[in-house]
Deep mutational scan, measured.
Amino acid sequence: VYKEIAITNGCINRMSKEELRAKLSEFKLETRGVKDVLKKRLKNYYKKQK
């Protein structure tokens, strides 16, 4: 499980701001904020899904 999260986090870290926004809107999450906030939001979402 932790390895999956680590791989997902690595992918998220390599995403551009536009990619992050697209992914967040896909999951109907808030898309406003600076890049670091968007990354954190997406990581938290994936963590809750596990």
Rank of each mutant, 00 (worst) to 15 (best):
Y45S: 08
E4R: 07
E18T: 15
A22Q: 13
K28T: 07
R21C: 05
K23Y: 07
Y2H: 14
F27Q: 10
D36R: 14
L42Y: 00
N13P: 01
K39F: 01
Q49S: 09
K28N: 14
N13A: 05
L38E: 01
K39T: 05
L24H: 03
L24F: 04
I7S: 11
E19C: 06
D36K: 15
V37L: 05
A6L: 12
M15V: 07
Y2C: 14
V1T: 11
E30R: 03
K17Y: 04
L20N: 00
S16C: 10
K35M: 03
K17E: 05
D36V: 07
E4S: 12
A6W: 08
V37F: 05
C11K: 13
K48M: 09
R32L: 03
E4Y: 10
A22W: 09
G33Q: 00
K48C: 07
A22F: 11
S16M: 00
A22H: 13
C11V: 14
E18R: 15
E26N: 08
R14F: 01
K48V: 06
V34A: 10
I5P: 14
K43S: 04
L42I: 04
Q49C: 10
F27I: 14
K43W: 04
N44M: 10
K3G: 13
R21N: 02
N9R: 15
I7G: 11
I12H: 02
V37K: 15
T31S: 12
I5D: 14
A22K: 15
L38R: 01
E26V: 06
E18I: 14
E4W: 08
E30L: 04
K17A: 09
G10Y: 08
K50E: 11
R32N: 06
T8P: 12
E18L: 14
K50R: 12
N9M: 15
L20H: 01
K48N: 10
N13Y: 06
R32I: 04
L24Q: 01
K50W: 13
K3I: 07
F27P: 01
S16E: 03
I7M: 14
G10M: 11
V34H: 15
R41Y: 01
D36W: 11
K39Q: 06
K40R: 11
R21I: 08
E26A: 09
K39E: 01
G33D: 04
A6R: 11
V1Q: 06
V37D: 08
V1L: 13
V37A: 13
L42D: 01
V1G: 14
K3P: 12
V34G: 09
E26D: 11
K28A: 11
R14T: 08
E30T: 04
V37M: 09
I12M: 05
L42M: 04
S25W: 09
I5F: 12
I7V: 12
E4T: 13
F27M: 14
E19R: 06
C11D: 15
E26S: 09
K47I: 06
E19H: 07
E30V: 03
K43Q: 05
S25R: 14
V37E: 12
L20F: 05
G10F: 07
S25Q: 13
V37I: 08
A22S: 13
Y2Q: 15
E19G: 06
A6E: 12
K43Y: 03
K47M: 07
Y46M: 15
Q49M: 13
I7D: 10
Y45Q: 02
I7A: 12
T31E: 07
K3T: 12
K39C: 06
N9I: 13
Y2M: 14
E30P: 08
K47P: 01
T8K: 12
E4M: 11
M15Y: 04
K35E: 04
T8G: 09
V1N: 15
N13F: 01
R32G: 06
A6H: 14
K35T: 07
R41K: 01
S25C: 11
I7C: 10
C11A: 15
K47T: 06
T8R: 10
R14S: 11
Y45R: 01
T31Y: 15
G33E: 02
R14K: 15
S25K: 14
R14E: 07
L42G: 02
K23H: 10
L29F: 03
R21Y: 03
K40V: 04
K23M: 09
K47W: 04
L42W: 01
G33M: 00
Y2L: 13
K40I: 02
K48F: 05
N44E: 09
N44D: 10
G10T: 11
D36G: 08
E30F: 05
S25A: 15
I5V: 13
D36P: 10
K47A: 08
N9V: 12
E18H: 13
Y2D: 15
K43E: 03
R41P: 02
L38M: 07
G33R: 03
A22R: 13
K50S: 11
N13L: 01
Y46G: 05
E26Y: 10
A22L: 13
Q49F: 09
L38Y: 00
E30G: 05
K23I: 09
K28L: 03
Y45D: 01
A6K: 14
L20I: 10
K47L: 06
K3W: 05
A6F: 12
E4C: 10
E26C: 07
Y46R: 08
L29T: 01
L29E: 03
S16V: 03
D36I: 07
L38F: 04
F27E: 13
K47H: 06
E19Y: 04
N9S: 12
D36M: 08
N9K: 15
L24P: 00
K23L: 10
K23C: 10
Y45N: 04
V1Y: 12
M15S: 00
T31F: 15
L20S: 05
V1K: 13
N9A: 13
G33V: 03
K35Y: 02
Q49H: 11
E18P: 14
K3S: 13
R21W: 02
Q49I: 12
E26M: 08
S25F: 11
E30I: 03
I7F: 09
M15N: 02
R21H: 04
R21T: 05
E30N: 10
F27H: 15
K23W: 08
Y46D: 01
V1C: 12
L24C: 13
F27S: 07
G10D: 10
E19L: 05
N9F: 12
K40N: 07
A6N: 14
V34Y: 08
G33A: 02
V1I: 14
G10V: 08
K39P: 00
S16P: 08
A22V: 13
K23D: 00
K23E: 05
A6V: 14
M15T: 06
R41W: 00
K35N: 03
I5K: 13
C11S: 14
K28E: 10
T31L: 04
K47V: 06
K17T: 06
E18K: 15
V1F: 11
K50P: 09
R41G: 01
N9G: 08
L20D: 00
K39H: 00
V37C: 09
Y2S: 15
N13S: 08
K47Y: 05
T8I: 08
K35G: 02
S16K: 14
I5M: 15
K43A: 04
Q49A: 10
V34L: 09
I12T: 05
I12W: 06
K28I: 02
I5W: 09
I5Q: 15
Q49G: 07
